[in-house]
């Protein structure tokens, strides 16, 4: 099969993937404004704006919750990626002893179920006096995000290596400068995926936030889950739409800023 022959099939797969991803979101949007939707109707029987009113003027202050969720997730994304990058530099460039051990240990939080791990973690936080604080929540989210950050950053750091940096150094650039001038631009795609991953993991944390934050640190995931548990489909849906939508907006902004930064450098 030639390249041109393959094209229609490729497009079909692409469209199918898009439908699979977008259809549930579309249904959620419809559900957000549904008052009654009895089976087997194709469309809802009656509509409502109750959910919008509840979302905007209800018991939760949407703006501040959105703000704190995004802020928290951005902090986790930045810290996670920086720690991931530093770990990756230590193992891949400076070749510290026991680097194989590091790469396995980094994955440990993935193996332990997060509910189990969150409960143990809460005890530690209480001992340290960090329970019910933002710092405590940041640390607990970081533990959940780091396996991804470290793995992604180790992969990109290994592929970029230090060859360009060493060239910059013999041309007169200090080690720090050579890293920022020539290695960092090459690492940018990896940094972006690590930050996105950490962001979405922090954004979606429920149990860890609940335990480490003691209910005092409110995030979107935290206020959303009770509605789902109550079975209020319309409200759950509109929260889910806000959840997905706000995450997408943040990704878009990050992507835009990265683009700008790359251009500004030239």
């Amino acid at each position: 099969m030639s390249k041109a022959d393959r094209k229609p099939y490729m497009n079909a797969v692409l469209i199918l993937t898009l439908v699979i991803i977008l259809l549930p979101v579309l249904i959620m949007i419809v559900w957000s404004f549904t008052a009654r939707w009895p089976w087997p109707n194709i469309m809802p029987e009656s509509w409502t704006t109750r959910t919008i009113t509840e979302l905007l003027y209800g018991s939760n202050d949407l703006v501040s919750i959105l703000g704190s969720s995004v802020l928290l997730a951005v902090i986790v994304a930045v810290l996670g990626t920086v720690i991931g990058l530093m770990t990756a530099r230590a193992t891949e460039i400076y070749r510290i002893r026991g680097r194989r051990v590091v790469s396995y240990v980094a994955l440990l939080p993935l193996i332990v179920p997060s509910t189990v791990f969150a409960m143990g973690f809460q005890v530690t936080l209480i001992r340290m006096g960090l329970n019910d604080t933002m710092t405590g929540v940041v640390i607990s989210h970081l533990v959940a995000a780091l396996p991804y950050c470290v793995t992604i950053m180790m992969d990109v750091t290994a592929s970029v290596g230090d060859r360009l940096e060493l060239q910059a150094q013999v041309l007169g650039a200090s080690p720090a400068r050579s890293f920022f001038d020539v290695s960092l631009p090459e690492l940018l795609p990896g940094i972006l995926s690590s930050a996105s991953m950490a962001f979405i993991i922090s954004y979606g944390q429920y149990f860890t936030t609940l335990l480490a934050g003691g209910g005092k640190i409110k995030t979107l995931a935290l206020v959303m889950v009770p509605y789902i548990q109550e079975g209020d489909r319309a409200l759950s849906s509109i929260y889910a739409v806000v959840f997905v939508g706000s995450a997408l907006v943040v990704f878009f902004v990050i992507e835009l800023m990265m683009h700008r930064a790359m251009k500004g450098e030239r």
């Binding site: 060859r163 360009l164 060493l166 060239q167 150094q169 013999v170 650039a173």
Partner: peptide, 16 residues
């Protein structure tokens, strides 16, 4: 290295 004033032109060029 960066203060030595010795430049290597590497086999693989290493252009940025």
């Amino acid at each position: 290295a960066y203060k030595r004033g010795v430049v290597i032109v590497f086999q693989d060029m290493r252009l940025f």
